[in-house]
């Protein structure tokens, strides 16, 4: 009993001196971080100009992040000529009446009362030509039926191109078309490791994001494998998007940032931002689709 009492006292002392942690508040110079406009806009060659406008708060402000509904959102061309002014719909979403054109640079300029005006520029990439997409039914090592798809496309030379590859299965039910994203895998080095974003068949299991670092200016042959659904699907659709560098960097960083929030063991991820005087993204993508009929 006496031994336990002594042990208890000594252990309590050690706990007190060695493990006790003290909390102290620090001065953190963010008071000068005034609220800024946040522009989230993706130019898509298939869609009208659009943007979502909200505002930022400093990190110590727990207030609600609100959408800005009274902003002026202008789309300008490379010579600062007005292309159009976007109109607010709901929840800070603004939409235009025209579609962006491939190979053209655009500028977005957003202003709102009590906020500094923000701008950003980006160029909508050109359309990519998918030369062919051939299928081959196979049995894989596990005995499952798979469909191997060989895709050929021409990469533009002397510039760094960035791509997103997606695959969809399509069903026509009672005359209505239903598209579902399909997962796929590939052993192509351009889709994994340093050329892509860390393994298309694992992390981005429905989208492969990659660059042309390893095949610049050539006809790229890409082999992917997906589940063979010919018995119950109507057709497959390949979507190959040529994306701008801001959109590539934003995609690369924002997903890693959000996936690792709160994880003390992971490295912090800095999210790409190309909005001057504000935050967010003004990027572009131009998609090419290829229907693969069975």
């Amino acid at each position: 009993m006496k031994q336990i009492q002594i042990s208890t006292i000594v252990f309590a002392l050690i706990l007190f001196v060695g493990v006790s942690s003290c909390e102290k508040y620090l001065d953190f110079e963010v008071k000068d971080k005034t609220s800024k406009l946040v522009v989230n806009s993706l130019m898509d060659g298939d869609s009208l100009f659009s943007a979502n406008i909200s505002h930022s708060l400093n990190i110590l402000d727990d207030g609600e992040l609100k959408h800005i509904e009274s902003a002026s959102v202008k789309i300008l061309d490379a010579d600062d000529n007005l292309v159009e002014i976007l109109t607010h719909t709901t929840n800070g979403n603004y939409i235009g009446a025209t579609k962006p054109l491939g190979g053209i640079s655009y500028k977005i300029e957003v202003s709102a009362p009590d906020y500094a005006t923000v701008t950003a520029t980006d160029k909508l990439p050109a359309t990519i030509n998918i030369i062919s997409a051939d299928t081959l039914g196979k049995i894989d090592a596990d005995g499952d039926s798979v469909l191997q798809i060989t895709i050929k496309f021409q990469d533009e030379s002397s510039v760094t191109n960035r791509y997103i590859l997606e695959l969809y299965t399509a069903d026509i039910i009672s005359g209505a078309l239903f598209m579902r994203p399909a997962s796929f895998s590939s052993s192509d080095i351009s889709l994994g490791g340093s050329g892509g974003l860390g393994g298309s068949d694992t992390y981005f299991y429905r989208q492969a994001i990659f660059t042309d670092n390893l095949f610049d200016g050539t006809i790229k042959t890409l082999v992917i494998t997906t589940e063979d659904t010919r018995a119950y699907d109507s057709f497959l659709q390949l979507t190959l998007s040529n994306i701008s560098n801001p959109w590539y960097e934003y995609r690369r960083t924002v997903e890693a940032h959000l996936a690792n929030q709160g994880n003390p063991f992971s490295q912090p991820v800095i999210v790409y931002n190309n909005i001057e005087n504000g935050f967010g993204i003004f990027g572009g993508k131009m998609s090419t689709r290829k229907k693969i009929s069975y």
Binding site: V30, K33, L42, S54, N58, F204, V254, P268, V271
Partner: peptide, 26 residues
Amino acid sequence: TERYLALDPSSLNANIFGGGAEIEHI
């Protein structure tokens, strides 16, 4: 130092995160 809303997740990969995602600006 600051925080703001990410782009509408439907434009990204909806399998990774849901709507209303916030970014901490570093």
